[in-house]
Design a protein around this nucleic acid. Sequence first.
RNA 1: GGUCCGUUCGUCUAGGGGUUAGGACGCAAGAUUUUCAUUCUUGUAACACGGGUUCGAUUCCCGUACGGACUACCA
Length: 511
Amino acid sequence: MENRKVRLRFAPSPTGPLHIGGVRSALYNYLFAKKHGGDFILRIEDTDQNRYVEGAEAYIVKSLAWCGIHPDEGPGIGGEYTPYRQSERKELGVYQKYADQLVASGNAYYAFDTAEELDAMRKKLEIAKASIQQYSHATRGEMKNSLSLPEEEWKQKIANGEPFVVRLKVPAGEEIRFTDVIRGEVVFNSDVVDDKVLLKSDGMPTYHLAHIVDDVLMDITHAVRGEEWLPSAPSHILIYRYLGWEDKMPQYAHLPLLLKPDGNGKLSKRDGDRLGFSVFPLEWKDPSSGEISSGYRETGYFPEAVVNMLALLGWNMEGEKEIFSMEELIANFSFEHVHKAGAKFNPEKAKWFNEQYLKEKPDAELAELLKPILLKTFNDKEFKDEFVVEVCRMMKDRVTFVSEIATKGSFFFVSPNYTAENLAKISKTITEEAINAILDVIGRDITDAANLEASLKEVATAQNLKIGEFMKFLRISIVGELSGPGVPDLILLLGANEAKSRVGECWKLMN
RNA sequence: GGUCCGUUCGUCUAGGGGUUAGGACGCAAGAUUUUCAUUCUUGUAACACGGGUUCGAUUCCCGUACGGACUACCA
């Protein structure tokens, strides 16, 4: 165990788009694996055919790739432990023999109960207010299984082709303890552990059996998963024990959950819709309903920002720095600094992270990202590369997303729309004479913003206008409103002709 | 109902038997700026409660409350 190569896996079910909490789980697995020079494996746990969703696996793969989380092994990638889809492994008979082994050793049994019968049992226990309302040592004697039925009878049932499942036989009155990497020692009494189904009637293993068999067969050293799995951990410990695999058992680490920003409960898709943020890395279109859920990528987030934000949601690094590259995260990651309590998701902080990354991006890179957006927003109007780069330089401190450069900075690309409300903000002291003086200054061949500003201020002084009022007029005529980069910079970038035309247009509308 | 996990500013968190309980987001104010934003400065605001243990507890222990997860032939 000590000298084994570190191997971690992320094992999602293809039942829909990968949730941002799932991305975080994958990230923590990846960071730990890479920190220790180990492998990160993607395994698809598609043992539930009823919940299988077309396109979900491809979505998962794309999402991880977008985040910069690259599996060393997985479907479509290959590896020594192929295949990496549990449905395919089942076809190979990977799980059946371990179920058989457990039955043979007396640690599992066949059960024939129908869904209705199981339901009836639970109802009965609920009405009786039984403290344990499960299929367990306390109830299995009254159910239809190979422990309660005479041997000839249950063998006959199997011979007749009656459907059955294999259940784990959990002993009564035992203490089951294990050490969680994040939580320390956790103890359960086996009396409250149910006889979990290991093999379903369709021959598919359940998660409980499948993940254990695969973790051992794939030499997984650390099983890092969400806290929702903690209650079933004792079942898993038992399975390892009964299979004689205690020495091969990976170290378990149960991650805190991601919670709703407001109120209580697990973060869900509905919260995103309700509060206006994404809970998925990429946009997802539900194949059956056609409903579209927004993604971080489409919203305009940089993958580095999402990764950075996610990493710090429930984990922290010593020191006061908060911006970390993937390499830095890998170099510093450890489970010791994973917080035990669930973390409420904070959309505001997510934006802040993106702003930090946006500011650090080179202008030219932003321009490349902006160009396709401009094409779409302004009907294929063409703009020079240097111009777009300059726009990015001026706007990057004022936006959260690149796309906002096109919206908040639309005045760079098309003439502003002068609203009556904004025109009303202009002082009535502006005279035609002043306008002519402005047009004259703009028309001069000035290429330096400071010089231009000085010249404009000279006009203001000569015209007996307050600098503030004067600049306000210029700003509204160029930008259309009272915000944005410095007026002289804008005039120089837009060019004398465009600037003069806007000043003229604005003046015309004022009168 | 039962089991398990958890609880430091509104949020993410640091810390840990003796601290002015630190940082970040947010919010507020100020400085800078023609404006907006950035940036800088400052402020705002927290150890759930009750018992122990101790000279001393937010920190350790036990309860309570509250929150969460699980309680499927789903993962």
